[in-house]
């Protein structure tokens, strides 16, 4: 069970406002990426975010470019999970591949405001807000494996070493 503070945003939060394109080929270190997280959406975010905070957003979170830095910068900024009404396809994969849990729950999103507290129970598959408990579909075993390993690269490395 993990408790965190909520940063709430709207629909169609795209990868350009999460991690601007101008940095995509000049910043290669994840810690440095974190300094620019959400720079063009909420310029104060990167300075104020605390480890364990949760991003809550509307529909189509992460639409746009395939840049994986959009997931990496959030993870290294300390974000423990993103809860949204829906996710764009490539971002969804990238987040899991970076070991960043992405949870889909329309009800949970509607039940919480910016700055509120949220608790995520990955074992039970539930999100708790001040207004109730909401479930999210459990991840398939393979996806859980990637998340637990901390991302696709460590997951694959372990798998290759086991061969």
């Amino acid at each position: 069970m993990k408790r965190g503070r909520v940063w709430k945003y709207g629909d169609n939060v795209n990868t350009d406002v999460i991690f601007p394109g101008k940095y995509t080929y000049s910043i290669l270190e994840p810690e440095e990426m974190a300094h620019h997280a959400l720079e063009d959406l909420d310029p104060g975010f990167a300075q104020k975010v605390k480890p364990g905070d949760v991003i809550v957003a509307g529909r189509n979170f992460g639409c746009g470019s395939s840049r994986e830095q959009a997931a990496t910068c959030l993870k290294y900024a300390g974000v423990q999970a993103v809860v949204a009404k829906s996710f764009a396809r490539i971002f969804f994969r990238n987040a899991i591949n970076q070991g960043l849990p992405v949870l889909q729950s329309e009800e949970a999103v509607d039940s919480i405001e910016h700055g509120g507290e949220i608790e995520i129970d990955f074992d039970r598959g539930s999100i708790k807000t001040a207004r109730g408990d909401f479930s999210f579909p459990a991840f398939p075993e393979s996806v859980m494996g990637i998340l637990e390993a901390g991302g696709l690269i460590p997951y694959t490395k372990k798998k290759l070493e086991g061969k």
């Binding site: 795209n14 350009d16 601007p20 101008k22 995509t24 080929y25 000049s26 720079e39 063009d40 746009g64």
Partner: peptide
């Protein structure tokens, strides 16, 4: 993608044949 060759200054407007018009792009 805003990396070179004609990036926009604050307050500027572009009209482009590209596929994306996201803020800051």
């Amino acid at each position: 993608l805003g990396a070179h060759q004609g990036v926009l200054a604050p307050g500027e407007v572009a009209l482009s044949t590209a596929n994306r018009n996201f803020r800051g792009r």
